[in-house]
């Protein structure tokens, strides 16, 4: 979602990456739809604090259905970086991990360093349960938001990739 998607792309595209470049808030809901439909596949959503805040109810829906194959990472830079860096409510104390925990998400955590993120993320992959991992990051975005991959090209490529996994 947003800067997170552009940054992921800048690290190297893979056919199992789907970038939600718009539709703010719906990355976690899309993860829910994917994980419920693909119970034998691990689904990872990389979201931002602004996108999670705009659809907080999603944390509650996720917890209600508890797809065990879903991990949500929220990169919390306390700002709406991609539209100019306006501070979000996490900058004044809103605790997204606390909200996820109280929504009854079974596994939650907050990482404040690269090492802590690596440990907790690996733990989430090894744990067979719904996880929300808030990761505090600096408000520094990717060099640019341009992707040499058309939005629809990515969408059809991703769908075809999932189909190929199912056929295996």
């Amino acid at each position: 979602m947003g800067a997170v998607a552009a940054e992921l792309y800048s690290l190297g595209h893979r056919p199992n990456f789907f970038y939600l470049e718009h539709a703010m808030g719906l990355a976690s809901s899309t993860g829910l739809g994917l994980s419920l439909s693909l119970p034998n596949k691990k689904v990872i959503v990389l979201d931002g604090d602004g996108s999670m805040l705009i659809n907080l109810g999603s944390l509650s829906t996720l917890a209600r259905y508890r797809p065990r194959n879903l991990t949500i990472v929220i990169f919390d830079n306390e700002s709406l970086l991609s539209v100019g860096g306006f501070p979000t409510a996490t900058s004044t104390g809103t605790d997204l991990e606390g909200i996820a925990r109280d929504a009854e998400v079974p596994q939650t955590g907050t990482a404040r360093s690269v090492g802590e993120f690596a440990d907790r993320f690996q733990n989430a992959l090894n744990t067979d349960d719904l996880t929300v991992l808030v990761t505090k990051v600096e408000a520094v975005g990717p060099p640019g938001f341009h992707m040499d991959l058309a939005l629809l090209e990515n969408r059809f490529q991703f769908q075809r990739h999932i189909r190929s996994l199912e056929e295996r």
Binding site: T30, G33, R163
Partner: peptide
């Protein structure tokens, strides 16, 4: 909308 989109992409 997101849930249906995820389901669709998953076939």
């Amino acid at each position: 909308v997101g849930i249906s989109a995820g389901a669709h992409l998953a076939g």
